[in-house]
Design a protein around this nucleic acid. Sequence first.
DNA 1: AAATACTGTGCAAATATATGCACTTATTAA
DNA 2: TTAATAAGTGCATATATTTGCACAGTATTT
Lengths: 158, 158
Amino acid sequence: MGNRTERLLAIRNIISSQKVSSQEELLDLLEKKGLNYTQATLSRDLKFLKVNKISDVEKGYIYELPDQHHIPGQELAESYAAQGFVSIQFANKLGVIRTLPGYAPSIASLIDKFNPFEIVGTLAGDDTILIIPHDNVTERDVINTLIIIVPELKNKIK
Amino acid sequence: MGNRTERLLAIRNIISSQKVSSQEELLDLLEKKGLNYTQATLSRDLKFLKVNKISDVEKGYIYELPDQHHIPGQELAESYAAQGFVSIQFANKLGVIRTLPGYAPSIASLIDKFNPFEIVGTLAGDDTILIIPHDNVTERDVINTLIIIVPELKNKIK
DNA sequence: AAATACTGTGCAAATATATGCACTTATTAA
DNA sequence: TTAATAAGTGCATATATTTGCACAGTATTT
């Protein structure tokens, strides 16, 4: 049943990139990606992902990922992270991020702060971060997650 | 019909002080304060107040006031505000805050940013801020609102 | 002052979301 | 490997939230 992970990731991608205000709406969007499920499952997924529903001028209420509040400093931290990022490789299910010297702790902390379920934890040295992915999470999933956290990475990875 | 304001204030008070996870529940709490309304009205109130529903470990989902996120810089601004605050007095329905020299603009901006419905607007000089409360809002209400914005004020006021 | 427009609210019905139960598929234990 | 347990999901239903409509009380316009 490895599809669950795929679905959860898709949900996160959708919610972080557009304003969605109901589970039915989200259901349709998933369907367009070839993911067919029921509203009941979605309800459970959203709870699992701790997705919030917040006030929005346009659409009344929309779903929002947790810890996504646009903190002023946050954006700075992200572009800083993107700047320090050098590469990512995988070995034995583990991810290894190389950074410019000194950047590892701050980038790792950014990841930890986001606390994605795909990543069980991180260990940071000075210029290296060890990423411990959740079981059944693929390399691609980890990379997609990192891109969600630091959008600028999209151009630097893969 | 001045009760609406009272109800809105009560809702904010309740939500900011305890975990509420449904409108029915909130309805009961209001009833205990002698405020009897229907769930439909509450639904409209919550939308008006831009109350969000966020994930909570204990109760699944609970209501949360907007702009309550702990923005790093925000806390700094708050403690700075608390430091500059000297006193508050009321006259002719208007509130007058005295601050240390130069503090008025930043404190006023903090209040404006929060944009509480109890306060129609503020005017800041160098060490004085004029608070223009909404009709039917009491002095106590204004003070409570200020405390919501700057919790540290609890010890400095009244 | 009468006519008109707006606000706040309840009621009932429409939408939206959560959940108990049953069933299937994966995981763990023996 | 087989039995026992847990995880994932749909279906139908329960629960929760929103909204159209009507109406009463205010405020505004003429």
